Amino acid sequence: MNKRQYYIDWIRTGLIFSVFFFHVGMVFNGWDWHIKNDVRLESLNPFMAMLHAWRMPLLFLVSGAGTRFALGFRSKRKYFAERSKRLLLPLVFGILVLVPVQVYIEKISSYSSLWDFYTHFFEGVYPKGNFSWHHLWFIVYLYFISIVFIPFISFFRSNYYQTVVETGLEKLSSMKGGSGLLFIPILLSQLLLRPYFPVETHAFYNDWAYLTLFFIYFLLGFALLGNSRVVENIKAQRRIWFLGGILAFAGWMMLSGASNLLAVNILREVTALLMSWLISLAILGYGKKYLNKDHRLRKALNEAIYPFYLIHQPVILVVGYWVLAISTGVLTKAILLIIWSLVICAILYIGIITRTRYLAGCFGLKR
Protein backbone atom coordinates (compact mmCIF):
# COMPACT_ATOMS: atom_id res chain seq x y z
CA MET A 1 0.00 0.00 0.00
CA ASN A 2 2.27 2.75 -1.31
CA LYS A 3 -0.41 5.28 -2.26
CA ARG A 4 -1.02 7.85 0.47
CA GLN A 5 -3.98 6.97 2.63
CA TYR A 6 -5.70 10.31 3.02
CA TYR A 7 -8.30 9.01 5.45
CA ILE A 8 -5.58 8.39 8.05
CA ASP A 9 -4.55 12.05 7.82
CA TRP A 10 -8.18 13.15 8.25
CA ILE A 11 -8.74 10.80 11.19
CA ARG A 12 -5.54 11.99 12.89
CA THR A 13 -6.57 15.61 12.41
CA GLY A 14 -10.05 14.91 13.79
CA LEU A 15 -8.59 13.12 16.82
CA ILE A 16 -6.30 16.03 17.71
CA PHE A 17 -9.21 18.45 17.44
CA SER A 18 -11.20 16.09 19.68
CA VAL A 19 -8.38 16.43 22.24
CA PHE A 20 -8.80 20.21 22.08
CA PHE A 21 -12.56 20.05 22.69
CA PHE A 22 -12.05 17.38 25.37
CA HIS A 23 -9.76 19.71 27.29
CA VAL A 24 -12.23 22.57 26.90
CA GLY A 25 -14.83 20.24 28.38
CA MET A 26 -12.52 19.50 31.30
CA VAL A 27 -12.91 23.14 32.36
CA PHE A 28 -16.67 22.67 32.81
CA ASN A 29 -17.37 19.00 33.63
CA GLY A 30 -17.52 17.39 37.06
CA TRP A 31 -13.95 16.07 37.19
CA ASP A 32 -11.02 17.85 38.80
CA TRP A 33 -8.65 19.65 36.43
CA HIS A 34 -6.11 22.47 36.39
CA ILE A 35 -8.75 25.22 36.25
CA LYS A 36 -12.49 24.80 36.83
CA ASN A 37 -15.60 26.86 36.26
CA ASP A 38 -17.59 27.70 39.39
CA VAL A 39 -20.60 25.82 37.93
CA ARG A 40 -19.81 22.23 36.97
CA LEU A 41 -21.78 20.25 34.39
CA GLU A 42 -21.91 16.70 35.70
CA SER A 43 -23.97 15.72 32.65
CA LEU A 44 -20.79 15.98 30.54
CA ASN A 45 -19.06 13.21 32.48
CA PRO A 46 -20.55 10.10 30.75
CA PHE A 47 -20.06 11.49 27.25
CA MET A 48 -16.46 12.52 27.97
CA ALA A 49 -15.72 9.16 29.61
CA MET A 50 -16.99 7.39 26.48
CA LEU A 51 -14.90 9.68 24.27
CA HIS A 52 -11.83 9.08 26.42
CA ALA A 53 -12.25 5.30 26.15
CA TRP A 54 -11.38 5.20 22.42
CA ARG A 55 -9.89 8.59 21.52
CA MET A 56 -6.27 8.06 22.61
CA PRO A 57 -6.09 4.33 21.73
CA LEU A 58 -7.22 5.19 18.21
CA LEU A 59 -4.60 7.94 18.04
CA PHE A 60 -1.90 5.38 18.84
CA LEU A 61 -3.42 3.06 16.23
CA VAL A 62 -3.13 5.65 13.44
CA SER A 63 0.35 6.51 14.75
CA GLY A 64 1.31 2.89 14.14
CA ALA A 65 -0.09 3.11 10.63
CA GLY A 66 1.77 6.35 9.99
CA THR A 67 4.97 4.70 11.19
CA ARG A 68 4.55 1.89 8.65
CA PHE A 69 4.09 4.32 5.77
CA ALA A 70 6.93 6.58 6.93
CA LEU A 71 9.34 3.74 7.73
CA GLY A 72 9.55 2.42 4.18
CA PHE A 73 12.99 0.91 3.68
CA ARG A 74 14.75 3.08 6.24
CA SER A 75 17.35 1.44 8.39
CA LYS A 76 16.74 1.05 12.10
CA ARG A 77 19.36 3.72 12.78
CA LYS A 78 17.67 6.25 10.50
CA TYR A 79 14.30 5.39 12.01
CA PHE A 80 15.68 6.00 15.52
CA ALA A 81 17.22 9.32 14.44
CA GLU A 82 14.00 10.47 12.78
CA ARG A 83 11.84 9.54 15.77
CA SER A 84 14.22 11.28 18.18
CA LYS A 85 14.26 14.46 16.11
CA ARG A 86 10.50 14.42 15.56
CA LEU A 87 9.48 13.54 19.13
CA LEU A 88 12.31 14.10 21.60
CA LEU A 89 13.18 17.68 20.64
CA PRO A 90 9.55 18.96 20.85
CA LEU A 91 9.14 17.03 24.11
CA VAL A 92 12.11 18.69 25.79
CA PHE A 93 11.14 22.10 24.42
CA GLY A 94 7.54 21.63 25.55
CA ILE A 95 8.50 20.58 29.07
CA LEU A 96 10.80 23.57 29.50
CA VAL A 97 8.69 26.24 27.77
CA LEU A 98 5.02 25.22 27.45
CA VAL A 99 4.33 23.16 30.58
CA PRO A 100 5.57 25.79 33.10
CA VAL A 101 2.88 28.16 31.81
CA GLN A 102 0.20 25.57 32.59
CA VAL A 103 1.40 24.74 36.09
CA TYR A 104 1.82 28.44 36.84
CA ILE A 105 -1.79 29.21 35.87
CA GLU A 106 -2.97 26.41 38.14
CA LYS A 107 -0.89 27.68 41.07
CA ILE A 108 -0.90 31.37 40.19
CA SER A 109 -1.89 32.51 43.69
CA SER A 110 1.37 31.10 45.10
CA TYR A 111 3.77 33.07 42.90
CA SER A 112 4.28 36.73 42.05
CA SER A 113 4.98 36.14 38.36
CA LEU A 114 5.67 33.47 35.75
CA TRP A 115 9.39 34.05 36.17
CA ASP A 116 9.07 33.65 39.94
CA PHE A 117 7.31 30.32 39.33
CA TYR A 118 9.90 29.20 36.76
CA THR A 119 12.68 29.51 39.34
CA HIS A 120 10.73 26.88 41.34
CA PHE A 121 9.69 24.69 38.38
CA PHE A 122 12.18 21.93 39.19
CA GLU A 123 11.22 21.72 42.86
CA GLY A 124 9.44 18.42 43.26
CA VAL A 125 7.15 16.48 40.94
CA TYR A 126 3.59 17.57 40.15
CA PRO A 127 1.04 17.70 41.75
CA LYS A 128 2.83 18.25 45.08
CA GLY A 129 5.77 19.82 43.30
CA ASN A 130 5.90 21.73 40.02
CA PHE A 131 7.82 19.63 37.49
CA SER A 132 5.56 17.84 35.00
CA TRP A 133 5.03 16.96 31.36
CA HIS A 134 1.23 17.43 31.55
CA HIS A 135 -0.42 16.77 28.14
CA LEU A 136 2.97 15.90 26.63
CA TRP A 137 2.60 12.44 28.16
CA PHE A 138 1.38 11.37 24.73
CA ILE A 139 4.75 12.35 23.22
CA VAL A 140 6.60 10.53 26.03
CA TYR A 141 4.61 7.35 25.46
CA LEU A 142 4.81 7.52 21.67
CA TYR A 143 8.58 7.99 21.78
CA PHE A 144 9.00 5.07 24.19
CA ILE A 145 6.75 2.86 22.04
CA SER A 146 8.63 3.90 18.90
CA ILE A 147 11.95 2.89 20.45
CA VAL A 148 10.63 -0.39 21.87
CA PHE A 149 9.21 -1.10 18.42
CA ILE A 150 12.66 -1.11 16.74
CA PRO A 151 13.38 -4.83 17.38
CA PHE A 152 10.00 -5.66 15.78
CA ILE A 153 10.99 -4.04 12.48
CA SER A 154 12.98 -7.08 11.36
CA PHE A 155 10.01 -9.34 12.07
CA PHE A 156 7.60 -7.17 10.09
CA ARG A 157 10.03 -7.19 7.17
CA SER A 158 10.62 -10.95 7.27
CA ASN A 159 9.31 -13.36 4.65
CA TYR A 160 7.46 -15.25 7.40
CA TYR A 161 5.45 -12.19 8.34
CA GLN A 162 4.68 -11.19 4.77
CA THR A 163 3.70 -14.68 3.62
CA VAL A 164 2.15 -16.23 6.72
CA VAL A 165 1.04 -13.54 9.18
CA GLU A 166 -0.31 -11.08 6.63
CA THR A 167 -2.18 -13.89 4.85
CA GLY A 168 -3.67 -14.89 8.21
CA LEU A 169 -4.75 -11.32 8.94
CA GLU A 170 -6.37 -11.08 5.51
CA LYS A 171 -8.31 -14.31 6.09
CA LEU A 172 -9.34 -13.25 9.59
CA SER A 173 -10.52 -9.83 8.47
CA SER A 174 -12.51 -11.36 5.60
CA MET A 175 -14.63 -13.33 8.09
CA LYS A 176 -17.76 -11.50 9.22
CA GLY A 177 -16.72 -9.82 12.47
CA GLY A 178 -13.25 -11.38 12.22
CA SER A 179 -11.29 -8.20 12.93
CA GLY A 180 -13.23 -7.88 16.16
CA LEU A 181 -11.36 -10.94 17.45
CA LEU A 182 -8.21 -8.85 17.62
CA PHE A 183 -9.80 -7.48 20.76
CA ILE A 184 -8.54 -10.64 22.53
CA PRO A 185 -4.88 -9.56 22.97
CA ILE A 186 -6.13 -6.17 24.17
CA LEU A 187 -8.36 -7.86 26.74
CA LEU A 188 -5.70 -10.32 27.94
CA SER A 189 -3.13 -7.57 28.45
CA GLN A 190 -5.52 -5.57 30.61
CA LEU A 191 -6.74 -8.57 32.62
CA LEU A 192 -3.12 -9.29 33.48
CA LEU A 193 -2.00 -5.72 34.24
CA ARG A 194 -5.01 -3.75 35.50
CA PRO A 195 -5.03 -5.50 38.92
CA TYR A 196 -1.53 -4.06 39.50
CA PHE A 197 -1.90 -0.76 37.61
CA PRO A 198 -5.61 0.08 37.81
CA VAL A 199 -5.44 3.85 37.29
CA GLU A 200 -4.37 5.73 34.17
CA THR A 201 -1.73 8.07 35.56
CA HIS A 202 0.26 9.31 32.51
CA ALA A 203 3.28 9.18 34.86
CA PHE A 204 4.94 6.36 32.86
CA TYR A 205 6.60 4.54 35.77
CA ASN A 206 3.28 3.31 37.24
CA ASP A 207 1.12 3.26 34.11
CA TRP A 208 2.11 -0.07 32.55
CA ALA A 209 -1.42 -1.31 31.88
CA TYR A 210 -2.30 1.67 29.72
CA LEU A 211 1.17 1.89 28.18
CA THR A 212 0.80 -1.75 27.09
CA LEU A 213 -2.68 -1.01 25.76
CA PHE A 214 -1.34 1.83 23.62
CA PHE A 215 1.56 -0.32 22.41
CA ILE A 216 -0.85 -3.04 21.24
CA TYR A 217 -2.95 -0.46 19.40
CA PHE A 218 0.25 0.89 17.81
CA LEU A 219 1.23 -2.62 16.63
CA LEU A 220 -2.28 -3.30 15.32
CA GLY A 221 -2.23 -0.02 13.40
CA PHE A 222 1.13 -0.92 11.88
CA ALA A 223 0.00 -4.44 10.94
CA LEU A 224 -3.58 -3.83 9.78
CA LEU A 225 -3.64 -0.45 8.09
CA GLY A 226 -0.63 -1.15 5.92
CA ASN A 227 -2.45 -4.07 4.29
CA SER A 228 -4.89 -2.91 1.61
CA ARG A 229 -6.95 -6.11 1.70
CA VAL A 230 -7.40 -5.92 5.46
CA VAL A 231 -8.43 -2.26 5.20
CA GLU A 232 -10.96 -3.10 2.49
CA ASN A 233 -12.43 -5.81 4.70
CA ILE A 234 -12.71 -3.40 7.62
CA LYS A 235 -14.45 -0.93 5.33
CA ALA A 236 -16.84 -3.56 3.99
CA GLN A 237 -17.90 -4.49 7.54
CA ARG A 238 -18.13 -0.94 8.85
CA ARG A 239 -21.82 -1.32 9.76
CA ILE A 240 -20.97 -4.30 11.96
CA TRP A 241 -18.39 -2.26 13.86
CA PHE A 242 -20.77 0.69 14.20
CA LEU A 243 -23.63 -1.45 15.53
CA GLY A 244 -21.29 -3.36 17.82
CA GLY A 245 -19.87 -0.10 19.17
CA ILE A 246 -23.37 1.24 19.86
CA LEU A 247 -24.37 -1.94 21.68
CA ALA A 248 -21.14 -1.95 23.70
CA PHE A 249 -21.71 1.70 24.61
CA ALA A 250 -25.26 0.91 25.76
CA GLY A 251 -23.95 -1.97 27.88
CA TRP A 252 -21.24 0.20 29.34
CA MET A 253 -23.79 2.89 30.26
CA MET A 254 -26.00 0.34 31.99
CA LEU A 255 -23.07 -1.07 33.94
CA SER A 256 -21.91 2.43 34.88
CA GLY A 257 -25.13 2.95 36.79
CA ALA A 258 -24.98 -0.46 38.48
CA SER A 259 -23.46 -1.42 41.82
CA ASN A 260 -19.78 -1.19 42.69
CA LEU A 261 -19.35 -4.94 43.10
CA LEU A 262 -15.99 -6.21 41.87
CA ALA A 263 -17.58 -8.42 39.20
CA VAL A 264 -19.63 -5.50 37.87
CA ASN A 265 -16.58 -3.23 37.79
CA ILE A 266 -14.57 -5.83 35.86
CA LEU A 267 -17.40 -6.36 33.39
CA ARG A 268 -17.73 -2.59 32.93
CA GLU A 269 -14.00 -2.26 32.16
CA VAL A 270 -14.14 -5.19 29.72
CA THR A 271 -17.12 -3.58 27.99
CA ALA A 272 -15.24 -0.28 27.76
CA LEU A 273 -12.29 -2.02 26.11
CA LEU A 274 -14.60 -3.76 23.62
CA MET A 275 -16.40 -0.48 22.91
CA SER A 276 -13.05 1.20 22.26
CA TRP A 277 -11.94 -1.42 19.73
CA LEU A 278 -15.26 -1.58 17.87
CA ILE A 279 -15.59 2.21 17.65
CA SER A 280 -12.01 2.38 16.37
CA LEU A 281 -12.82 -0.15 13.65
CA ALA A 282 -16.00 1.74 12.77
CA ILE A 283 -14.13 5.03 12.40
CA LEU A 284 -11.49 3.35 10.25
CA GLY A 285 -14.14 1.70 8.07
CA TYR A 286 -16.21 4.83 7.52
CA GLY A 287 -13.05 6.92 7.19
CA LYS A 288 -11.76 4.67 4.43
CA LYS A 289 -15.15 4.81 2.70
CA TYR A 290 -15.79 8.55 2.83
CA LEU A 291 -12.56 10.35 3.78
CA ASN A 292 -9.96 8.76 1.53
CA LYS A 293 -9.70 11.79 -0.72
CA ASP A 294 -7.35 14.72 -0.90
CA HIS A 295 -8.24 18.37 -0.34
CA ARG A 296 -6.21 21.54 -0.51
CA LEU A 297 -6.54 21.91 3.28
CA ARG A 298 -5.44 18.35 4.13
CA LYS A 299 -1.70 18.89 3.78
CA ALA A 300 -1.77 22.20 5.69
CA LEU A 301 -3.84 20.70 8.51
CA ASN A 302 -1.68 17.59 8.63
CA GLU A 303 1.42 19.75 9.10
CA ALA A 304 -0.21 22.07 11.63
CA ILE A 305 -1.81 19.44 13.83
CA TYR A 306 1.36 18.47 15.73
CA PRO A 307 2.28 22.05 16.77
CA PHE A 308 -1.40 22.60 17.54
CA TYR A 309 -1.35 19.64 19.93
CA LEU A 310 1.73 21.02 21.66
CA ILE A 311 0.35 24.53 22.25
CA HIS A 312 -3.39 23.94 22.64
CA GLN A 313 -3.47 23.11 26.36
CA PRO A 314 -1.36 26.03 27.64
CA VAL A 315 -3.46 28.32 25.45
CA ILE A 316 -6.70 26.87 26.86
CA LEU A 317 -5.47 27.39 30.42
CA VAL A 318 -4.29 30.96 29.86
CA VAL A 319 -7.47 31.95 28.02
CA GLY A 320 -9.60 30.01 30.48
CA TYR A 321 -8.08 31.83 33.44
CA TRP A 322 -9.46 35.12 32.08
CA VAL A 323 -12.71 33.77 30.66
CA LEU A 324 -13.71 32.10 33.93
CA ALA A 325 -13.43 35.45 35.69
CA ILE A 326 -16.25 36.88 33.53
CA SER A 327 -19.69 36.93 35.13
CA THR A 328 -21.69 35.13 32.47
CA GLY A 329 -23.27 31.75 31.71
CA VAL A 330 -21.50 28.46 31.05
CA LEU A 331 -22.39 28.41 27.35
CA THR A 332 -21.01 31.91 26.77
CA LYS A 333 -17.82 31.05 28.62
CA ALA A 334 -17.39 27.86 26.59
CA ILE A 335 -17.91 29.68 23.29
CA LEU A 336 -15.46 32.43 24.25
CA LEU A 337 -12.91 29.85 25.41
CA ILE A 338 -13.17 27.86 22.17
CA ILE A 339 -13.03 30.87 19.82
CA TRP A 340 -10.22 32.72 21.53
CA SER A 341 -8.14 29.58 22.06
CA LEU A 342 -8.41 28.63 18.38
CA VAL A 343 -7.61 32.19 17.27
CA ILE A 344 -4.54 32.43 19.51
CA CYS A 345 -3.32 28.97 18.43
CA ALA A 346 -3.66 30.05 14.79
CA ILE A 347 -1.77 33.28 15.44
CA LEU A 348 1.03 31.47 17.25
CA TYR A 349 1.33 28.85 14.52
CA ILE A 350 1.02 31.03 11.42
CA GLY A 351 2.60 34.19 12.77
CA ILE A 352 5.45 32.81 14.89
CA ILE A 353 6.14 29.06 14.74
CA THR A 354 6.20 28.65 10.96
CA ARG A 355 8.17 31.87 10.48
CA THR A 356 10.99 31.05 12.88
CA ARG A 357 13.45 28.51 11.57
CA TYR A 358 14.70 26.99 14.80
CA LEU A 359 11.35 27.32 16.58
CA ALA A 360 9.74 25.30 13.78
CA GLY A 361 12.14 22.45 14.58
CA CYS A 362 11.18 22.65 18.25
CA PHE A 363 7.57 22.05 17.21
CA GLY A 364 8.36 19.06 15.04
CA LEU A 365 8.20 20.89 11.71
CA LYS A 366 10.74 20.65 8.93
CA ARG A 367 12.85 23.79 9.02
Results as ranks from 00 to 15, higher is better:
residue 166 E to C: 09
residue 39 V to K: 06
residue 17 F to Q: 00
residue 191 L to M: 04
residue 167 T to P: 03
residue 153 I to L: 14
residue 362 C to K: 08
residue 81 A to Y: 15
residue 43 S to A: 15
residue 101 V to I: 15
residue 123 E to T: 10
residue 339 I to Y: 05
residue 105 I to F: 12
residue 336 L to C: 07
residue 9 D to R: 07
residue 114 L to D: 12
residue 275 M to T: 03
residue 223 A to F: 02
residue 331 L to E: 11
residue 18 S to H: 07
residue 219 L to H: 04
residue 157 R to Q: 14
residue 326 I to L: 14
residue 131 F to I: 02
residue 214 F to A: 09
residue 36 K to Y: 11
residue 281 L to E: 04
residue 54 W to D: 00
residue 228 S to K: 07
residue 223 A to R: 03
residue 332 T to K: 15
residue 85 K to V: 08
residue 18 S to A: 15
residue 276 S to W: 05
residue 184 I to Y: 12
residue 118 Y to C: 13
residue 305 I to N: 03
residue 153 I to T: 15
residue 2 N to F: 15
residue 351 G to E: 06
residue 16 I to P: 03
residue 207 D to G: 00
residue 255 L to C: 13
residue 105 I to E: 03
residue 101 V to G: 01
residue 254 M to S: 09
residue 193 L to A: 10
residue 215 F to H: 08
residue 268 R to K: 13
residue 18 S to C: 15
residue 184 I to R: 11
residue 142 L to Q: 10
residue 58 L to S: 03
residue 79 Y to H: 15
residue 325 A to F: 07
residue 129 G to V: 04
residue 114 L to I: 15
residue 172 L to D: 09
residue 75 S to R: 13
residue 75 S to K: 12
residue 122 F to P: 09
residue 172 L to E: 13
residue 25 G to S: 04
residue 159 N to K: 11
residue 83 R to L: 09
residue 230 V to S: 00
residue 350 I to H: 15
residue 133 W to G: 00
residue 267 L to H: 06
residue 323 V to R: 01
residue 110 S to I: 00
residue 214 F to K: 08
residue 362 C to T: 13
residue 39 V to T: 08
residue 63 S to I: 02
residue 11 I to T: 01
residue 180 G to C: 10
residue 214 F to R: 07
residue 345 C to Q: 08
residue 249 F to Y: 15
residue 96 L to Y: 10
residue 155 F to C: 14
residue 108 I to R: 12
residue 108 I to A: 13
residue 72 G to S: 05
residue 198 P to G: 00
residue 357 R to P: 12
residue 80 F to A: 13
residue 250 A to Q: 02
residue 29 N to G: 05
residue 135 H to P: 01
residue 356 T to N: 01
residue 25 G to A: 02
residue 172 L to C: 08
residue 36 K to D: 11
residue 288 K to C: 07
residue 165 V to N: 06
residue 205 Y to N: 07
residue 290 Y to S: 14
residue 62 V to A: 05
residue 180 G to N: 10
residue 74 R to T: 11
residue 99 V to F: 08
residue 211 L to N: 10
residue 285 G to N: 01
residue 85 K to R: 08
residue 108 I to Q: 12
residue 343 V to L: 14
residue 12 R to A: 03
residue 46 P to N: 01
residue 309 Y to L: 05
residue 275 M to Q: 13
residue 311 I to T: 08
residue 55 R to H: 12
residue 323 V to T: 02
residue 78 K to T: 12
residue 8 I to Q: 11
residue 355 R to K: 15
residue 204 F to Y: 14
residue 196 Y to I: 09
residue 236 A to T: 12
residue 348 L to W: 08
residue 323 V to F: 01
residue 165 V to K: 10
residue 163 T to L: 10
residue 341 S to Y: 03
residue 323 V to D: 00
residue 166 E to F: 14
residue 49 A to S: 13
residue 268 R to G: 02
residue 101 V to Y: 02
residue 356 T to K: 02
residue 66 G to T: 14
residue 288 K to I: 02
residue 41 L to S: 12
residue 359 L to Q: 01
residue 135 H to R: 02
residue 246 I to C: 14
residue 209 A to H: 05
